[in-house]
């Protein structure tokens, strides 16, 4: 049985010019880390709020562990943990008080479930008398995760837990999620960072209220294989502009110290593109075929939509 089933969900907000969600369907397997990846405004938060029974959809149905999000909302609330995008703990309670509060609300105690949070909470323990409002960003994130876990939920919903967090803290946070998954919990997590796709079992790419692709990372890269070339050389910005002006270019974007180039089918391949660049005086330019990454796939899909 799937942990989460979403079928034809639609949602529009009053006064908004476009729909927040349009006909969204997918299923999350038990025990997997499922990533919703997309920019702000794509509909990720709306979807998570519907699944955590905090918002009603206009169309479609959804269930969590077999419970309908509308009819059985009480059952769902006891079974899921939720970490909202905005820090929502009590700022004027201490670290320990916040954790005890969330345990009590769910009819349990910190002692009974301490083993679930021990790994993360041990890092907070030296500060347990500090007010939550006085914690640093990384500490707040860890406390919020503990509070979402203390009632032993079966499914964890995390709404952009790593936004604005530096690369090292993000790696650490994903390490924690990996260890939780080994404990058997199902995790649905949203993120705007494409590189985090590699940490998920499966990902859904979300854009403008729709899921534009859904697969494992390897599957996505496989199925959307557009021939992609990496171009490097001195004076990267002029090279970028010149490649965009090239008649054979479908699109070209900067990727760190290289540009990723996708050519039109009839463009004469990478040799012709390189000859063009050399002709413009880019003597150091080089070009090679690469395996596209998740960002290439996303760009390809959005670019197709934009056409």
């Amino acid at each position: 049985m799937s942990a989460v089933v979403v079928d034809g969900l639609g949602k529009a907000y009053p006064r908004a010019s476009s729909k927040a969600l349009t006909d969204v369907s997918f299923a999350v397997d038990r025990g997997e880390i499922f990533g919703l990846i997309g920019p702000d405004g794509a509909g990720k938060t709306t979807l998570i709020r519907i699944l955590t029974t905090l918002l009603l959809a206009d169309q479609g149905t959804a269930s969590v562990l077999g419970h309908d999000v509308v009819r059985d909302f009480r059952a769902i609330r006891a079974l899921v943990g939720y970490m909202p995008g905005r820090f929502s703990l009590y700022q004027d309670l201490s670290v320990a008080e916040n954790l005890a509060f969330f345990a009590t609300v769910f009819g349990t105690t910190v002692e009974a479930n301490y083993h679930l949070v021990a790994d993360i909470y041990s890092q907070l323990e030296p500060f347990k008398t500090r007010l939550a409002g006085k914690l640093s960003g990384g500490m707040k994130q860890k406390l919020a995760l503990c509070c979402a876990l203390i009632h032993a939920p079966k499914v964890l919903f995390l709404d952009e837990p790593t936004t604005g967090v530096d690369p090292v803290s993000r790696k650490d946070f994903w390490g924690m999620l990996g260890r939780l998954r080994e404990g058997g919990i199902t995790i649905l997590v949203s993120t705007p960072y494409m590189d985090e796709a590699a940490r998920c079992d499966r990902i859904a790419l979300v854009q403008k209220g729709q899921i534009i692709a859904l697969d494992s990372l390897a599957g996505l890269v496989e199925s959307h294989a557009t021939e992609t070339y990496a171009v490097s050389g001195e004076r990267l910005f002029p090279i970028l502009n010149d490649l965009r002006a090239y008649a054979g270019t479908r699109y070209c974007f900067a990727f760190g110290r290289e540009h990723h180039l996708v050519l039109k089918p009839d463009a004469g391949g990478p040799e012709a593109a390189l000859a063009y660049l050399r002709g413009l005086g880019h003597q150091t330019a080089s070009i090679r075929a690469i395996r596209p990454n998740v960002e290439d796939v996303f760009i390809d899909l959005i670019h197709e939509q934009g056409q």
Partner: peptide, 8 residues
């Protein structure tokens, strides 16, 4: 540049 898609 937080929170936007890779093209933007």
């Amino acid at each position: 540049t937080g929170g936007v898609d890779p093209i933007v």
